[in-house]
Design a protein around this nucleic acid. Sequence first.
DNA 1: ATAGGGTTAG
Length: 727
Amino acid sequence: MKSAYKTLLNINSRKSFKMCLYNSINLLKDLSNQRLITQGAALHGCLIKMGMSSERYIAVKLLNMYLNCRKSFEINHMLKEFNGFDLVVHNCLINANVEWGELDEARRLFDEMPERNEVTWTALVSGLLKYGKVKDAMWYFERNPFQNVFFWTATICGLVQNGLAFQGMKLFLRMLKFRIMPNAVTFTTLIRACGDLCDFELGMSILSLIVKVGFEDELAVSNSLISFNLRLGEIELARQIFDRMEEKDVVSWTAILDMYVEMDNLEEARRIFDDMPERNEVSWSAMIARYSQSGYPEEAVLLFLQMVRSGVKPSTSCFSSAISACASLLALQSGRNIHGQVIKNGIQEDLFVSSSLVDLYCKCGNTEDGRRVFEYSAMQKNVVCWNSMIAGYGLNGQLEEAKELFDQMRNKNSISWNSLIAAYLKIEQFDKVLDVFNEMLLSGETPTKSTFSSVLCACASLASLEKGRNLHGRIVKLGFEFDVYVATALTDMYCKSGNIESSRQLFNRIDRRNEICWTAMIQGLAENGFAEESLTLFEEMLQSSVAPNELILLAVLFACSHCGLIDKGLYYFNLMEKVYNIKPIDKHYTCVVDMLSRSGRLSEAEKFITSMPCEPEANAWAALLSGCKTYKDEKLAEKAARKLSELEDKSGGFVLLSNVYASAGRWLDVLNTRKLMKEKGLKKIGGCSWIEVGNHVHVFFSQDGSHTHSVEIFGILELLKSEMVIS
DNA sequence: ATAGGGTTAG
C-alpha cells in the first residue's frame, strides 16, 4: 500500500482523471481502515491541489476517514462542505456513532432522517446488536422495508455474536423463505453458528448447501470450516481442508496453528508461526496467547518482547496475554513495564487488559495497586474484572474486602462464587466454605467442577465423611465424577476420612491420571497405614508416563518410614536427585530423620541431621527426640530438645524431653523441665477428637471443659454404665 | 455484513 500511496502522490497530469479518482478512493479507504491519519491528511492536501476534493465520492471518503479517526475539527469542516445532510452523509454519521458506541445519538439520527435506505437500516440494526441490544435490534429488524443479503447476513451475524446461534439459524431459514440468496459471508457466519452449537451434523448440512451453491472454494468459507472442525475435535478434517486449499491467507495459517496447539504440539505450532508467509497482529497475539494458556509463560513474554522489537504494534489481546503471562511468572517488574505501555497506548480502560492487570498486581501480593487498576478501568466493569479483584483479595487473605466486593456485585457468575469459596479455603475457614457453598446453591447458581474441588478439599480437612458423601451424590448427578480434578478431590476426601476402600474404587476409575491424583492416592494409602500398597502404587506410577514430583517422594518416604523399610527409604532418597532430578527440601530430610529415629538408628539420624545442606526443620529435631524417647537415649534427647527449643516456641519438645527423663527415672530433671516450660509461658496443648452428628461437628478436648454439653454427656454415660451392669 | 487472537476461579 505504501508504494501505491507514493505512486499516487507522484501522479502527473497525463494520467487520466478517472483513473486517478478511482485510485484515490481505494487509497483513502485503506488509509482510513488503518487509521493512518497523517498520510490521509497529506492525500487530502494533494486532492485539493488537483481540484478533486469536492468530487462527491472523494468528499464522502474523506469524511469517513476523519470520522474513523474521530478528528472533530476536520469532521465539522467536511460537514460544512456538504449542502445539507443528505442520505449518504447521514448514513456515514450513523455508522460513525455506532463505531464510537454512541448508540443513542445513532438512534436519534435515524429517527430524524427524512428518508432511509437499506444501508441506514443495516447500520442501525447491526449497531444495536454489536452492543448487545438484541431486543431493540429485532424490533427494528421486523420493521425494515428494505430486504437484501447484507441486511439479513448482518442480523444473523449479530445474533450469533450475542451467543444466539440457534436464533441465527432460525433467521436463516426465514431468509430462504423470503427467497434471498445467501452469499459467502452468510455461510461463514452460519458455520460459526454450527460451531457455537457444537452440532457437527448441522454443520455438514450447511456444507452440503455451500457445495450446492458453489462457495466451497471461497477463502473465508474454507477458513471457517477449518476452525469449525477444530472446535469439534475433527483434527483430520481440518487438516484436509487446509491442504486442499489453493489459496491460503493469514487467517488460514493462524487457524492451522491452533491445530497443533489442539494436538499439544506447541513446538510445531511455533514452527508454523515462524514459517508463515505473512503475519499480522492477530497471528502474533494467537501465538502469545497459546504459550500463556498452555503453561509456557516465559515463552509468551519473550515473544511479546520480540513483537515489540520487530516494530509490530501489539493489539489489546497481546497486552492481556502478555500481562497474564507475567502474572503466572509473578514477574512484577516486567508487568509494570507493560502497564506503562498500556497507559501510553491509552487502553487502560479495556476490560481484558485491566482484568489481567488486576490479576497481576494481586498475584504479586499488591492488592492496593490491583484495586487502583480496578477503580480506574472502564466505568461499566464486567464480571471478569470484578472476579479478578475478588479472587485477588482472596489470594492475599483479605477476606473482608473480598466479601464486601462480592456483596456489591450485581451480576455474579459461578466463577465469582468459586473465587469466594477459594478465598475461605485459603485461610482454612472450612465451615465458611460450606456456608458459602450452600448460599451458592440457594442463589440458583450451578456449581462447577472447580466448586466441587474446593468444597471437597474443605470436607477433607474437616474429615467430614457425611458431607463429602452428600457432595459425591451431587457430583454423580452432574456427571463430574471422573473429571481428574473432582475425582482427585474425592479420593483425597475419602482418604482423609479414613474410607480407603472408596478412595481405591474412585482412583481406579480415573483414566487420565495426572501427578496430583497419584500423589493423593499414594499419600492417602501411606497415611492410613497401607504403606506397602502405597509403595506398590508408586512403582506402578513409575511405569506410566507421569514423572514423580517432590510431594510424591515425600509420601513415598513417609510410607517407608511407617513400614519400617529403612533401606528402601534411603534408596529412594538417594535416587531423588540422581534419577528423578528433584532436589530434596527440608521436609524430605525430616522424613529420613524420622525413619532412622523410629528404627532406633539414632546415631545415624544425628549424623544425617547435622550434615544436611539446608537448615533442618524443627520437626526433624522433634522426630529425633521422639526416637530418643522410645530408645531411651537421654543424652541425645537433651541435645535435640535444646535445638528444638531454639527453633520454635512450642511446648512439644519440652513435653517429650520430660517424658524421656521420666522413663529414665530422672524425676528432678522432669521437674526442672516443667519449670522451664512455665517460665517460658508454654502450655501443653491438649489433644482433641471430634464426631459428626447430623449436620454438626462435636469437638472433645482431652483436658479442660471439653464440650458445652459435657455434664449431660457424662450423665448419660453413667446411666448407660449402670444399665450395662444391671443387665 | 465474515473467517483467525484476549481477562478471572480450581
